[in-house]
Design a protein around this nucleic acid. Structure first.
Lengths: 239, 239
DNA sequence: TTTTCGTGCTCTGCATGCAATTCATGCCAA
DNA sequence: TTGGCATGAATTGCATGCAGAGCACGAAAA
């Protein structure tokens, strides 16, 4: 009928959130949630900022409907605070919340490590060893950013090795807020040497398939990380 | 100007989800999510059922927009499965998923009990004792429904006593699916005597402020419950 | 008979319109 | 000057319109 199929409804804007052909083309709300999550974590949208629907939807090149859906998802993750008939705000991260956050992450990772001790495959263990080696190299070289990226990959891999979707999803849901805390804390390399050593001990416990030890070591490690971040957040109260 | 303030736009339907003046008047999407959650848990919407937006929105007396928002929330909770360009379906609860679910709940409740051992207030402990007494009375009388209600209240109170919002929210998110498993399992009173005794031991550990013991006992208790439910779900495969 | 393509319908995904609520400004009275 | 209320603008919450994707049914070809 009409060989030229141009969208009649409206000339689509030069979208800001096009996935560049990477993913399996999810809905706009999903892309918007991912983009907003990144903007909040990296601080482009600062804590307390009002998220006006019309502004944001225009900035992202989408309409208010998928944006609203994305905001509700971020509210579940605790990144955004919804208030009835008011503009949503980027959630503030109170010090007590950081404590609670890392208590929860420690709980999940302890259980994950205990399960992983018996469920982790040799291939996964080998990958953990490689990540650990690489991370230590970055540690030795003093490269902070790749160190953190690998650190995070290690934790994620341990959780994945537990073969438990509920734990993995709960862990992912908490991850964004932990990342915010990590970025805001000054003096990020304070606990560096200690942390690398703890990672080595955790890896050894997993290799020995010692569930209790792996769980305890990982929970303590996360707890120490939380304490250190909290100190880096509260002591020098410069925003 | 106009003393009679009738809504001009559209005669509002005799809504099916009016909160009856109970809550603080939340949005329709929130009410819809709550209603749908109940319908799925109680089995009115059976596993695998297609959730057609137009049908559901008509049934609930709302439009598709808030319904879609509610469905996305339920998808995060794992109650609904969203598929691109297809009707969402009520999620099936596979046996492996039940195992994972109770592993995760055990992890969260263990951590909660450990924290609660030092944070629980005398008033909360007193309330726990009363709930335990009441639950034992229903146990002795053979009243299944109130027993389960109290059982659930006890677990929720222990988690609340941990004073950790992240853990509490993660626990709540998993609760609906656990309730589904509980309802579907036949022979729900199989482990009854054992379960009541375990609760007594958990309460004693909390009263003694013994974090490790409370955590271990509660995690084991949840694990046993999961195992029993799994057996009740898989053995007699009659739906 | 089986496979493949075409046709139409249904339903989702997104955009937009409209009313109610909220917040800010300014006026009036004390 | 200060407190209280009216008025208007800004913004959310919900409803609906519209295009496209997916599925079913059926016809035509192998």
């Amino acid at each position: 009928m009409d060989p030229v199929r141009r969208p009649r409804g409206r000339p689509r804007k030069p979208v800001l959130l096009d996935t560049a052909g990477l993913g399996p083309r999810r809905g706009l709300h999903d892309q918007a949630a991912e983009r907003l999550r990144a903007l909040i974590v990296e601080g482009t949208l600062p804590a307390g900022a009002a998220l006006v629907e019309t502004e944001l939807s225009a900035a992202l090149g989408i309409s208010r409907t998928p944006l609203r859906e994305a905001l509700k998802l971020l509210a579940v993750e605790g990144l955004v605070e919804l208030r009835p008939n008011r503009s949503p705000r980027v959630a503030e991260l109170q010090p007590e919340a950081v404590t609670e956050l890392f208590e929860a992450i420690a709980a999940i990772e302890r259980a994950a490590a205990e399960l992983a001790a018996s469920r982790i495959t040799p291939a996964e263990l080998e990958r953990l060893r490689r990540l650990q080696t690489e991370m230590e190299a970055h540690h030795a070289a003093g490269d902070l950013a790749p160190y953190f990226a690998l650190n995070q990959q290690i934790h994620a891999l341990i959780v994945a090795s537990a073969r438990n979707a509920c734990l993995r999803e709960a862990h992912e849901a908490l991850h964004a807020r932990a990342e915010i805390a990590r970025r805001r804390a000054l003096d990020s390399r304070a606990r560096w040497d200690e942390s690398v050593a703890e990672h080595r001990a955790i890896l050894a416990a997993l290799e020995a398939r010692d569930a209790a030890r792996a769980g305890r070591l990982l929970a303590d490690h996360v707890g120490h990380t939380g304490t250190a971040l909290l100190a880096g957040l509260t002591r020098p109260d410069a925003a």
